[in-house]
């Protein structure tokens, strides 16, 4: 237990440090069904396993079109993140973007993001953020970024891992949180039925499926229902964006992780008067306070060990 306690302490310390950071991607590796992550640019990249394991990269919340403090050039920071992805991708087979590709769902913003992300030269999968479905009920986003999935949710298999992209950003109810809706829940239940419980599952959704902070709407009203369908699986990883900071939680066989934004940081839950961008964040530190996140399983325990370390002072 000492080991676990040490790691927990380190997590807390690392977590506080990494709150100062914004702007890159996360590399995910699935080895033996257990996903591990490392922030791009970190020394932990050396932990990339030999061929055979599935590796993928996550970026999120590029907000192309946002041009205010603390980041007036979100295209540039997305480009930097993608350049790093291209540098370090190694044998990574996928890139995922967990939503808020754009600021205002404008075609030009989608174009810019799509062109930049293509620079990674990787098969890319997107899920919509609430900023991406502001026009025509999301149709223009789905046609461009989730081809074949008219409502933005879909699944596919990659090297034995089952990936599920969810849409929890539409038909939100007054006073509520993120929302999947009955149709999507039924689709999910069907998608999972008959699957072997030993198949690793990776779920992507923009708004956290677990309640990070209710007052700021950082959760999904019917997320628990979706998670109930996933309970029987031995390895489930839920990857979210939306909150522009790293958060993680492990519940049974389910590991939750939120990615940082490539655009701007948001405050820790309840630490500011609202969930908007941290406007007075020093611009020169947006790039210099990059961090590393390394996730690995403590042997004999269901817990994932996740350590975040900043790269710069």
């Amino acid at each position: 237990m000492t080991q676990t306690d040490d790691i927990a302490t380190e997590n807390r310390r690392g977590f506080l440090k990494c709150m100062l950071w914004a702007g890159t991607g996360v590399v995910w590796t699935v080895a033996g069904g257990v996903p591990r992550s490392a922030l791009i640019g970190g020394g932990a990249m050396a932990a990339t396993p030999a061929g055979g394991d599935l590796t993928f990269v996550q970026i999120s919340d590029s907000h192309i079109g946002f041009a205010k403090a603390p980041n007036t050039d979100t295209a540039a920071t997305l480009k930097e993140a993608v350049d790093r992805v291209a540098e370090i991708k190694g044998n990574a087979s996928l890139l995922i973007h967990t939503g808020d590709v754009s600021q205002l769902s404008r075609a030009a913003q989608f174009d810019t993001a799509e062109q930049i992300v293509k620079g990674a030269g990787m098969d890319t999968h997107y899920v919509p953020g609430e900023h991406d479905v502001l026009e025509d009920d999301g149709k223009s986003f789905f046609e461009r970024f989730t081809k074949g999935a008219a409502r933005g949710y879909y699944s596919f298999d990659q090297q034995g891992v089952h990936f599920i992209g969810l849409n929890n950003v539409q038909d939100l109810k007054s006073g509520g949180l993120g929302n999947l809706g009955q149709d999507q829940l039924e689709w999910l239940e069907k998608d999972l039925s008959g699957r072997s419980a030993s198949q690793p599952i990776v779920v992507m959704a923009h708004i956290p499926l677990w309640t990070v902070y209710q007052d700021w709407g950082w959760g999904t009203d019917d997320g628990a229902k979706a998670l109930s369908y996933l309970k029987r699986f031995g390895s489930v990883t839920v990857l979210n964006g939306h909150i522009h900071q790293v958060m993680q939680k492990v519940e049974g066989n389910v590991a939750f992780h939120t990615a940082r934004s490539t655009a701007f940081p948001q405050a820790a839950p309840g630490s500011a008067s609202g969930p908007g961008p941290i406007k007075d964040f020093p611009p020169d530190r947006l790039r210099t306070v990059l961090g590393v996140t390394k996730v690995s399983q403590i042997r004999g325990s269901a817990q994932l060990a996740i350590v975040d370390t900043p790269l710069g002072a």
Binding site: L172, W216, G217
Partner: peptide
Amino acid sequence: YHYFCSLHPKMQ
């Protein structure tokens, strides 16, 4: 008339 922000439904 009750109204909210459909993007951030905690806003009412």
